[in-house]
Design a protein around this nucleic acid. Structure first.
Length: 685
DNA sequence: AGCTTTCAACTTTTT
DNA sequence: GTTGAAAGCT
């Protein structure tokens, strides 16, 4: 995924992958070996070969990867053609299939898609609990089941203990409720299209004809259901290109299985397997370390990365006296490297760790040193419950047919409309093929619902209409703010926050977020100096107009890629990315490989888990282009007192001492210390 | 027994 | 920084 890496032309292996058009193809793309490049060039080759852009499907796991791929395709085949390519995530493809053929699996055309917060709420209802942690465990278990292709019955049979049996019961109730709401969760977006293709021969034929060639990115991350969907999609013809790297499979815990990769050669004997082993990203020392670590894992396919970029700097290992010390040394490293080369930017650095909570110390120290940073992965501002609540109302103002927004808004704050009423409304709406909002005012609704319930619903509808009218007329910063605040007061949102299960302090923090959000929206209604660039925003927009662009605004606000900041990220979230200078921190036994507190001290972690942890280390190492620093804690904070930190076994596995230049690391360390000393003399920042 | 206070631990995450 | 559990106090 690196626009920087790669030669002008394709190397031999890449060429073979691109030109193998008439059969199934598996490309084992080592880290930094130009896998996106291969996919994009293969798309171009297929177009050349006479396929229409709409007949080529390229599937990814994340929207970001899909977007990146489309950008790369645009550069190669032109914007016009690239726009027609079926580049999407598995889930978006699922949505597309269900929107057109969902009726075949009992779904109305404008079914709702629930996000995981919505799902959690329904889990709590279905299981009759208000315990978040318990509901989340169910959600987790049920999602894993669904990803293995089990329905509630199969899950019931597969349940191994009481907890799982209860979860299976909850699953059944949950599925019934989704059916009544005409809603699907993320897992259904894969499972239902698969069911569609399995059951409906006509649909199967149609979709198999639609896509003449299917390319799949990161195939090692597919779960059982996604794999089956892929097989159904390509059919007997089996024209596909699967690209992936078994050594970078780090999502076993969420249902991905490398069994899929093992099965491919068995199920498609004519499969052409091509390994991409030339790495265009990292220098020799870094690759040696990566190869040495991954060599400890059993291999499905033999593969060894090499590079023409020269040996480069040796990998550095630092032993630190606790978390704070570690963070300070990483800060010092950023500063000293920047002091050496004027061309080195903050965005050339990444600090990678195993678990999110480890980011905190680094944030602290970076702030202290006035170094700008971003934490990737963590929860975004727009993912917070209170912001999502408000967004649901705004979305509903703009499009009253937005059913998920309707469900959220009508129940937040609570207005005496429970799941009974909503299930009945949902059934009614799906029978008449209308949205939930439309159904509110249908004359025949009385046949489906009790009078009292209808009154409540229609009252909600009237409030919403009134708000819509006012939002249509109101513009300008101050007026917009006044309108939004009045509306929040009317629906009693602040009280709702305090009535919830949150502590007073958290409720107050949420309310303050809400006020920020209101101001943020109001600013965009104009009549104020705009934040960006300080120019006067002459164009006054109504609240409704601003609400219409909310999703665009949000995606813009979230896109801050091009800032010059240090990246803090989990190892998982770093996959597919690269930086010139990478620091892997907290590389200790217990953290990487991870060992949960509930496991007995002498308990061995299973071989399978250890292998995945090792791949995680491998992913971390291979993110680095020029320098790699691995740090481990000699002492580790554990609550009040400090315990001995044991360096991760993966450090030894890098076999750094077998590298020829032995003196170098120490030499480097000395320079680093000198640089540090220089900083102390320098005036305080 | 029930409440309060203190203490320690804290996976990984996309759609 | 937050949350859950355990111990201690009333």
């Amino acid at each position: 995924m690196s626009p920087t890496a790669g030669p002008i032309s394709l190397n031999n292996a890449q060429m073979m992958a691109v030109h193998h058009l008439d059969g199934p193809c598996l490309v084992l793309a080592g880290a930094g070996s130009g896998k996106t490049r291969v996919i994009v060039h293969k798309v171009a080759r297929l177009l050349q070969h006479g396929l229409g852009p709409k007949q080529i499907a390229a599937l990814t796991f994340t929207n970001k990867a899909a977007k990146e791929m489309r950008e790369r395709a645009k550069a190669l085949v032109g914007a016009r053609t690239a726009a027609d390519l079926a580049i999407s995530t598995f889930h978006s493809l699922g949505v597309r299939m269900l929107r057109s053929d969902g009726t075949c699996v009992g779904l109305k055309a404008n079914f709702s898609i629930l996000d995981s917060d919505d799902v959690l709420g329904i889990m709590k209802e279905a299981g009759g609990t208000s315990d978040n942690a318990l509901a989340r465990r169910w959600q987790w278990t049920i999602s894993l089941w669904k990803n293995q292709g089990l329905n509630a019955d199969a899950a019931q049979a597969a349940a191994r203990d009481d907890d799982e049996r209860i979860a299976a019961t909850v699953m059944r109730r949950f599925e019934e409720r989704l059916q009544a709401f005409q809603a699907v969760d993320f897992d259904d977006l894969i499972a239902l299209p698969l069911m569609l293709l399995q059951r409906d021969a006509q649909a199967r034929q149609r979709w198999q004809q639609q896509f003449h060639h299917v390319l799949v990115d990161e195939v090692q991350d597919t779960n059982a259901v996604q794999y089956e969907l892929l097989k159904m999609l390509v059919g007997e013809r089996a024209l596909f290109t699967a690209v992936g790297d078994d050594d970078q499979s780090i999502y076993g815990w969420r249902g991905a299985t490398i069994d899929n990769l093992k099965r491919l050669p068995q199920e498609f004997p004519q499969l052409k397997v091509i390994a991409l082993e030339q790495n265009y990203r990292s220098t020799g020392h870094i690759l040696n370390a990566a190869n040495a670590v991954i060599a400890k894992n059993p291999k499905i396919f033999e593969k060894k990365l090499w590079s023409e970029l020269g040996d480069g700097e040796p990998v550095r290992v630092l032993e630190c006296d606790g978390e704070e010390h570690e963070a300070e040394r990483m800060v010092a490293r950023v500063q000293s490297l920047r002091a050496q080369g004027a061309a080195i930017k903050f965005s050339d650095f990444a600090i990678l760790y195993r678990a999110n909570h480890l980011a905190r110390v680094f944030e602290q120290k970076l702030r202290g040193a006035q170094i700008p940073y971003k934490v990737s992965g963590g929860q975004s501002y727009f993912d917070r419950a209170e912001i999502k609540d408000l967004c649901a109302w705004l979305r509903l103002l703009v499009n009253s047919d937005d059913d998920p927004a309707f469900l959220r808004a009508v129940t937040t704050p609570k207005r005496g409309i429970g799941h009974q009423t909503l299930a009945a409304l949902g059934e009614f709406a799906s029978r008449w093929k209308v949205s939930l909002f439309e159904a509110l005012f249908a004359p025949s609704l009385a046949s489906a619902l009790k009078g009292k319930a209808i009154d409540g619903l229609q009252e909600f509808g009237r409030e919403l209409n009134a708000l819509e009218q006012r939002a249509r007329r109101t513009s300008g910063h101050e007026d917009a703010r006044a309108l939004l605040l009045e509306w929040l007061r009317d629906i009693g949102y602040e009280r709702h926050l305090h009535d919830g299960q949150d502590s007073e302090k958290l409720a107050a923090a949420r309310w303050s977020n809400v006020l920020d959000f209101v101001d943020w929206i109001a600013r965009r209604c104009g009549g104020e100096l705009s934040q960006e660039g300080g120019k006067f925003e002459s164009e006054r927009q109504t609240v409704l107009q601003v609400a219409q662009t909310i999703s665009v605004i949000i995606s813009l606000a979230e896109r801050d890629d091009d800032q010059d900041v240090v990246t803090l990220s989990t190892l998982h979230a770093a996959k597919g990315l690269e930086w010139p200078h990478v620091m892997l921190v907290g590389i200790n036994e217990g953290l990487l490989p991870f060992k949960s507190g509930s496991e007995a001290a002498d308990e061995q972690i299973t071989a399978e888990r250890l292998e995945e942890e090792r791949r995680l280390m491998y992913v971390g190492i291979t993110r680095a282009r020029q320098t790699l620093t691995v740090s481990t804690l000699r002492r580790r904070k554990k609550g009040r007192d400090t315990v001995i930190g044991v360096p991760s076994r993966f450090i030894a596995e890098m076999k750094l001492d077998e590298v020829k230049s032995r003196e170098d690391p120490r030499e480097r360390l000395k320079k680093l210390r000198d640089a540090l000393a220089a900083k102390v003399v320098a005036p305080l920042r």
